[in-house]
């Protein structure tokens, strides 16, 4: 046991020790204001905080996976095979949903369940091709627009002209000129989709060129490549992800629209637009409305989900939301 006296002595010694100089460490001084901010980590963290978005991400990932493995599952039917009623020998028309035909059959006896997933596959495929083209070509044109000064005025004027014509009209004209087909659909949508991306990339490049923090960075001798990688690329990549996500509802919407005005895919290719159109034809008979409901519900879930996902990601990738 220490006596109170001893304690006091030890305390006094410790106190004396405390009032001597500490080791000065310049490294530690530099570390005082260290921030462990990381762009991608913050982006993912903000995204994960959005519960709706996380739910939809899981939903869409499983849905997309399902559409692609569905044909290989046991007991699946061919989407274009016309089923025959064994009793009458006639087409199994407008057969209501049951154990055999989960979503029923359409007006010529094709299995709606199989057609629905086949159509979703087609529509998603178009949307993804268009989305990728949009970011590749858009980035390319945007980069030229921003970097090649002699072409700047020309491209600006070209952008003005094209963006002044309503997209609807451009799409209709191209689809009309080229005759409806899978390729036509893709070409028509590729012709207009890249405009927004090109303008975005161009603006970013102008910012890289002229913003003060980049000017400062350049004055300090940072090579342009590094400025692009550090200051432009993270944001650009997140914009690309967002654009692809948002182009999916957009492309599906245009497909449905073109199909409605008779410029869609040929009838032998199931797509969400075609299915919806088939459903619309029989919608006046309440008993047959299932042919409209199933495609409409699947289409709405997909478009809304991707739209929300795209926007949620856009919010998450904006550094201003990273607190």
């Amino acid at each position: 046991m220490m006596t109170a006296k001893e304690k006091e002595v030890i305390q006094a010694i410790e106190e004396q020790e405390l009032f001597t100089f500490a080791q000065y460490d310049p490294e530690a001084a530099e570390r005082t204001g260290y921030s462990d901010y990381s762009y991608w980590r913050s982006t993912i963290r903000v995204f994960l905080r959005n519960k709706t978005a996380v739910f939809l991400l899981i939903l869409m990932t499983s849905l997309v996976a399902f559409t692609f493995i569905q044909p290989y599952l046991p007991g699946q039917k061919d989407p274009i095979k016309i089923h025959i009623d064994p009793n009458t020998g006639l087409q199994l028309r407008n057969h209501p949903p049951d154990k055999e035909f989960w979503f029923g059959t359409n007006s010529i006896g094709q299995d709606l369940w199989a057609r629905l997933w086949s159509g979703t596959r087609t529509s998603l495929l178009i949307a993804i091709i268009v989305g990728i083209w949009e970011i590749v070509f858009g980035t390319f044109v945007g980069a030229i627009w921003g970097y090649v000064r002699p072409l700047e005025a020309f491209l600006t004027e070209a952008y003005n002209v094209i963006s002044n014509i309503p997209t609807t009209i451009i799409l209709m004209l191209i689809a009309y000129i080229l005759r409806p087909s899978f390729q036509t659909m893709i070409i028509a949508m590729c012709a207009t989709g890249w405009l927004g991306m090109a303008r975005f990339v161009r603006n970013q490049i102008v910012i890289i060129r002229d913003r003060e923090y980049n000017l400062a960075s350049r004055c300090l001798g940072t090579p342009t490549g590094r400025i692009i990688v550090k200051n432009l690329l993270p944001y650009l990549v997140s914009v690309m992800v967002m654009r692809v996500a948002l182009s999916i509802p957009g492309t599906i919407g245009w497909e449905v629209f073109l199909t409605y005005i008779g410029l869609g895919l040929p009838l032998n290719i199931p797509s969400l637009g075609n299915l919806l159109n088939e459903g619309r034809r029989v919608m006046m008979a309440p008993a047959l409305r299932y042919q409209l409901f199933f495609p409409a519900v699947v289409l709405s879930v997909i478009t809304v989900s991707f739209y929300v996902l795209g926007n949620a990601f856009a919010d998450a990738s904006d550094p201003r939301n990273h607190f």
């Binding site: 509802p249 409209l292 409409a296 289409l299 478009t303 809304v304 739209y307």
Partner: peptide
């Protein structure tokens, strides 16, 4: 706003008519 922007008019306008 999300619903109207995401879902093609062809879908919801049809149901409104119906």
């Amino acid at each position: 706003v999300v619903f109207i922007n995401a879902v093609p008019g062809a879908v919801y306008l049809l149901f409104i008519q119906l």
